[in-house]
Design a protein around this nucleic acid. Structure first.
Length: 829
RNA sequence: GCCUGGGUGGCGAAACUGGUAGACGCGCCAGACUCAAAAUCUGGUUUGGGCAACCAAGUGUGGGUUCGAUUCCCACCCCAGGCACCA
C-alpha cells in the first residue's frame, strides 16, 4: 500500500477499526467497581428504543446522536460519563407485529435486539454495553413485578371496577394518557367505555407534588407545560345542594338559612362559587348515581331513554364541544342554598361522570355551556356578575364570564369575583354546605392490560384471602410461552386460557387460587429502567444503593416530547413513590430534560406510506457514521429538529474530508500563525459555550469557519492549529477524531487521553475591530480601529470616509452615538 | 378557545445584553485542473436599479417605543405540537 493511499480518508475502514477497538478495550464501559468509585459521575440518558422489526429510523438516530454528542463532550471535559442503552421490548407493538407475521414474540424480540445493537454500534454511540436492559428479560421484569408489589403493599395499587377506555381493535384497556382525542394512540380506533375491574396506581395522590416539582426542575418549557395541562389543577369549591324530597310540583322558596345538608345532597365542584345565586338549575351526568332516586314517575321513561342514548354514544362524539346541547328534566328539584329557591334537576351528556363530581350547578348567566343549555330548554337566566358599564339588570345576550362585581346576590352584592368566591364558600361552610376545594384533571393510572406480551401482574386471587401479593422470593412470575396469544374481546387476557399457568395455591392460606391473568402496562417497564441501568450487576436487588447514590438522579435526559405526559409523568411518579418508601433518596429522577425536535425530509413528515423514509444503514454505508452524525447535528438546533435534504450531507462530508487532509499534512513543531490562533481561540470559546446548550449546529459552523481559516489560500497548517479541532469534532465524528488523534502520535483513545481545549480570553479579542458608521441609522461605511479607540478618534476617522462625508455634507450633526468596537451613528437634522 | 414553540435568501439556517441582517452549509453561476466527466480547488450569489462607485427595499402583517428593532411593546395572520362541553 502506498503512503498516499494510507493518507486517504476512508470512513468505512476508520469506523470499523475504532468500533472494534472501543469494544476490545472497553473504552465506553464501566465495571461495577468503577461505577462504585467514579470521581466525577455524569449520567447521560436517552430514551431507550422499542426494538421494532424495521430497525432504527432516522428519528432514533437523531435523538441518540444528539444525546451521544452531549455525553462525549462531557467525557472530553473530564467527567466519568455513564451512557447506557436498552430495549423497551414488551408491549402491544411487538405483539401485534408478531401476530401479523406469525412469529412468537419470544423469538422475534431477540433478533430485533440483535439488529438494533448492530445499528447502535454502527452509528458510533458511546454505549456501555455491559449495562444494558431488556424489559422482557425475566431478570429485569422480576423487579418490575417487585415494583408493583411495593405499590400494592403501600396501598397505592388498587383493583377497582371503573369505567375504563377499551380499544376494540387492540382488545385491551388503555390508560387515559394513551387516549388521544378519543382515539387509541396506537391504532386510532375510537375508544369505548367499559366497566371492568382493573389495577390502578393512585397517581392522583401525587398530583400536587408532581405539579409543584415542575417549578424547580430544569426541563424544556414545552414538556413542563404539557405536564401542567395534563395534571390540570383548578381551584374552586365543593358545594352541596339538598334534594327536595318527593318534589312533585313547585315546593316553594324557603329561608336560605334553614337549608341544611341533611338527606340526599347533590355535590358539585365549581370554580365559580361566587355565581351561586345565578344557579337556576342543576345538571347531572346521565350515569350519576342519584339520577334514579331523583327522577319522578312521570319522567321515568324520558330519563331512561336519554340514559340509553348516552350510553350508546361513544366518547369521541359525546365530547365534541360543538355538538348541540341535549338533556332531559328528571322532574326532581333541589334547593339552591344561596337563596332557598327550588331549582330543577336535569341530566345531560355534556356533564361527564369522570370529572369533578359528575354533577354541576348550572349558571347560565356566567357559563357559556349553561347559557346554551338554558336557552335551548327555556330555563331562567340571571345575571350575577356585572362587568364594566353593566347594571344588575343589563340583559345578557350571552354568558358573561369576565371579571366584575356581584349583583343579584343578596348580601354579597358589590363584592369582586375573587372576594365573592371566598365569601360565598365561607358562608355556606358555616352550614356544612361547601368548602374550598382543589380539583385535578389527572386520573389514576390504569396499568392492567388484557394482552399477552407483558409482565404478569404478581397477584394471586383467593376466594378466602382476596387479592394476595406473590411473595417477593417467588418472583419473577414468569410469562409462560404460549402459542395462542391472540387477544379477544372477552375483557380478559389470553393468559386466562392457560389453566395450567393460572391455577395455583394461595400464598396466604394454601387454598386453591388463581393468578392474576392481566399483564402490566409497558409504561411501567419504562418508568424505572434508568434506575436499573447502573445496577444490572446486581441480581439480588433492583438497585445497588451505593451506585444509585453516586449516579442518580440522571444528569441529562434527552428524548422526544411525545412522552411528555406518558413516560415522563409515570417515571416521576414511580420515583416519588420509591422515595417515600425509602428505596431512594431523591424525588425527581431527571434533573435536566431536553426535548429534541423532529426530523422532516424535504419539508415533509417522514412516513412509510409517503415512501420518504431514510434508511440510516444506507447513509452510513455511503458516507460513514461520522458524516451522518455531523450532518444530523448540523441541520438545525437539536431542540427544534431539522429538515433532512439529501444534498445537504455533502457539506459535512466535505468538511470532514478537508479536516482529515489538513491534519494528515500538518507540519509538526511549528508555531501557530497569529491570526489563525485567534480564530482558533474564538472557535474554542464558541464550541465550549454552545455544545452543552445543544447548539450543535452553530458549534459545527464555527469549526468549519476555523478550518477555512486554517486552510486559507491553500497554506499548509501547523499541527498546533489543527489538533484542537480534532478534539472539538470528536463528539460529532468520534471515529475520525480517534484516528487523527492516533496519527498525531497519541497513544490512548482521544476520549481517555485528550482534554477539551481551553481558550485564552486575550486571544479571543481582535487586534482590529471593524466599526460600522451610520448616518441616521443607515450604514454608510465601516472603519477599522484598534479595540477601545475613543470617540474623538473614531469620529475623525469616520468623517474622513468618503461616503460618510458625502452623507454628512451640508447637514448639521445633532448627536453622535458611539458604541465602542461596534458602531458610530451620526444623527443629522 | 387556552397553553407551548416557530415564521428570516432558491433551500437548511446564523445574529451577543437593542448596534454592520443573512455567519456556516446546500444549491446555483463563472473560472482552474481534465480529451471529457466526476472529484477537487478559486471566486460570486437577499431583491430591484446601475458598467461601477453607490442607491433603494427587505426578517409573517399592521401599528408603537428608540439615534438605531429579527430582537422590546400592542393588535392580528399563518404553521407545528399539547389540552379542551374540565364545571
Amino acid at each position: 500500500m502506498s503512503s498516499e493511499a494510507e493518507n486517504q480518508y476512508a470512513p468505512g475502514e476508520v469506523e470499523a477499526k475504532w468500533q472494534r477497538l472501543w469494544e476490545e478495550r472497553g473504552t465506553n464501559s464501566f465495571t461495577a467497581d468503577e461505577l462504585r468509585s467514579a470521581q466525577s459521575p455524569y449520567y447521560n440518558l436517552m430514551m431507550f428504543p422499542y426494538p421494532s422489526a424495521e430497525g432504527l429510523h432516522v428519528g432514533n438516530m437523531y435523538a441518540f446522536t444528539g444525546a451521544d454528542v452531549h455525553g462525549r463532550f462531557h467525557r472530553l471535559t473530564g467527567r466519568d460519563v455513564f451512557e447506557p442503552i436498552g430495549f423497551d421490548a414488551f408491549g402491544i407493538h411487538s405483539e401485534n407485529f408478531a401476530l401479523k407475521q406469525g412469529v412468537h414474540p419470544m423469538d422475534l424480540i431477540p433478533s430485533n435486539i440483535a439488529n438494533f445493537t448492530r445499528q447502535l454500534k454502527a452509528i458510533g454511540g458511546m454505549y456501555d454495553w455491559d449495562h444494558t436492559v431488556d424489559t422482557t428479560d425475566p431478570a429485569y421484569y422480576k423487579w418490575t413485578q417487585w415494583l408493583f408489589l411495593q405499590l400494592f403493599k403501600a396501598g397505592l395499587a388498587e383493583r377497582k371496577e371503573a369505567p375504563v377506555n377499551w380499544c376494540p381493535s387492540c382488545m385491551t384497556v388503555l390508560a387515559n394518557e394513551q387516549v388521544i382525542q378519543g382515539l387509541c394512540e396506537r391504532c386510532d380506533s375510537a375508544v369505548e367505555q367499559r366497566h371492568i375491574a382493573q389495577w390502578f396506581f393512585r397517581i392522583t395522590e401525587y398530583a400536587q407534588r408532581l405539579l409543584d416539582n415542575l417549578e424547580h426542575i430544569d426541563w424544556s418549557e414545552s414538556t413542563r407545560k404539557a405536564q401542567q395541562n395534563w395534571i390540570g389543577r383548578s381551584e374552586g369549591a365543593t358545594l352541596r345542594f339538598p334534594v327536595i324530597e318527593g318534589g312533585n310540583g313547585d315546593p316553594g322558596t324557603v329561608d336560605p338559612l334553614t337549608v341544611t345538608a341533611d338527606g340526599d345532597v347533590i355535590e358539585v365542584f365549581t370554580t365559580r362559587p361566587d355565581t351561586l345565586f345565578g344557579a337556576t338549575f342543576m345538571v347531572l351526568s346521565p350515569e350519576h348515581p342519584l339520577v334514579a332516586s331523583i327522577t319522578t314517575d312521570a319522567q321515568q321513561a324520558a330519563v331512561a331513554a336519554y340514559q340509553a342514548q348516552a350510553a350508546k354514544t361513544d366518547l369521541v362524539s359525546r365530547q365534541k364541544a360543538d355538538k348541540e346541547k341535549t338533556g332531559v328534566f328528571t322532574g326532581g328539584y333541589c334547593r339552591n342554598p344561596a337563596n332557598g329557591a327550588p331549582i330543577p334537576v336535569w341530566i345531560a351528556d355534556y356533564v361527564l361522570m369522570e370529572y369533578g363530581t359528575g354533577a354541576i350547578m348550572a349558571v347560565p348567566g356566567g357559563d357559556e355551556r349553561d347559557f346554551e343549555f338554558a336557552t335551548a330548554m327555556g330555563i331562567e337566566i340571571v345575571r350575577v356578575v356585572a362587568g364594566e358599564g353593566d347594571g344588575a339588570d343589563t340583559p345578557l345576550a350571552e354568558a358573561y364570564t369576565g371579571d366584575g362585581v356581584l349583583v343579584n346576590s343578596g348580601p354579597f352584592d358589590g363584592l369582586g369575583v375573587a372576594d365573592g368566591k371566598r365569601a360565598v364558600t365561607a358562608w355556606l361552610g358555616e352550614r356544612g354546605l361547601g368548602e374550598l376545594k382543589v380539583n385535578y384533571r389527572l386520573r389514576d393510572w390504569c396499568i392492567s392490560r388484557q394482552r399477552y406480551w407483558g409482565p404478569p401482574i404478581p397477584i394471586v386471587h383467593c376466594d378466602a384471602c382476596g387479592a394476595v401479593a406473590v411473595p417477593e422470593d417467588q418472583l419473577p412470575v414468569e410469562l409462560p410461552r404460549v402459542d395462542d396469544f391472540k387477544p379477544d374481546d372477552t375483557g380478559v387476557s389470553p393468559l386466562a386460557r392457560v389453566a395450567s399457568w393460572y391455577e395455583t395455591t394461595c400464598p396466604g392460606c394454601d387454598g386453591p387460587a388463581r393468578r392474576e391473568t392481566d399483564v402490566s402496562d409497558t409504561f411501567l417497564d419504562s418508568s424505572w429502567y434508568f434506575l436499573r441501568y447502573p445496577s444490572t450487576d446486581r441480581n439480588d436487588a433492583p438497585m445497588d444503593d451505593g451506585i444509585t447514590a453516586r449516579w442518580l438522579p440522571v444528569d441529562s435526559y434527552i428524548g422526544g416530547n411525545e412522552h411528555a405526559v406518558l413516560h415522563l409523568m409515570y417515571s416521576r411518579f414511580i420515583n416519588m413513590v420509591l422515595k417515600d418508601l425509602g428505596h431512594i433518596d431523591f424525588e425527581e429522577p431527571f434533573v435536566k430534560f431536553r426535548a429534541h425536535g423532529l426530523i422532516t425530509r424535504n419539508g415533509a413528515k417522514m412516513s412509510k406510506s409517503r415512501g420518504n423514509v431514510i434508511t440510516p444503514d444506507a447513509i452510513i454505508d455511503q458516507y460513514g457514521a461520522d458524516t451522518f452524525r455531523t450532518y444530523l447535528m448540523f441541520m438545525g438546533p437539536l431542540e427544534e429538529g431539522g429538515d433532512y435534504r439529501d444534498e445537504g450531507i455533502q457539506g459535512p462530508f466535505g468538511f470532514l474530508h478537508r479536516l482529515w487532509d489538513a491534519v494528515v499534512t500538518a507540519k509538526p513543531d511549528t508555531a501557530a500563525d497569529e491570526d489563525v490562533e485567534r480564530k482558533l481561540h474564538k472557535t474554542i470559546k464558541q464550541a465550549t459555550e454552545q455544545i452543552p446548550e445543544l447548539g450543535y449546529n452553530t458549534a459545527i459552523a464555527a469549526m468549519m469557519e476555523c478550518l477555512n481559516a486554517v486552510r486559507a489560500g491553500g497554506r499548509q497548517p501547523a499541527v498546533a492549529e489543527v489538533e484542537p479541532l480534532v478534539v472539538m469534532i470528536a463528539p460529532f465524528a468520534p471515529h475520525l477524531a480517534e484516528e487523527l488523534w492516533e496519527r498525531l502520535g497519541h497513544g490512548k483513545s482521544i476520549f481517555a487521553g485528550a482534554n477539551w481545549p481551553a481558550y485564552d480570553e486575550a486571544k479571543v479579542r481582535d487586534e482590529v475591530v471593524s466599526v460600522a458608521v451610520q448616518v441616521n441609522g443607515k450604514l454608510r461605511g465601516t472603519i477599522s480601529l484598534a479595540p477601545g479607540t475613543d470617540q474623538a478618534e473614531a469620529e475623525a476617522l469616520a468623517r474622513a470616509e468618503e461616503n460618510v462625508a458625502r452623507h454628512l455634507d451640508n447637514a448639521e450633526v445633532r448627536r453622535v452615538i458611539y458604541v465602542p468596537n461596534r458602531l458610530l451613528n451620526f444623527v443629522v437634522g
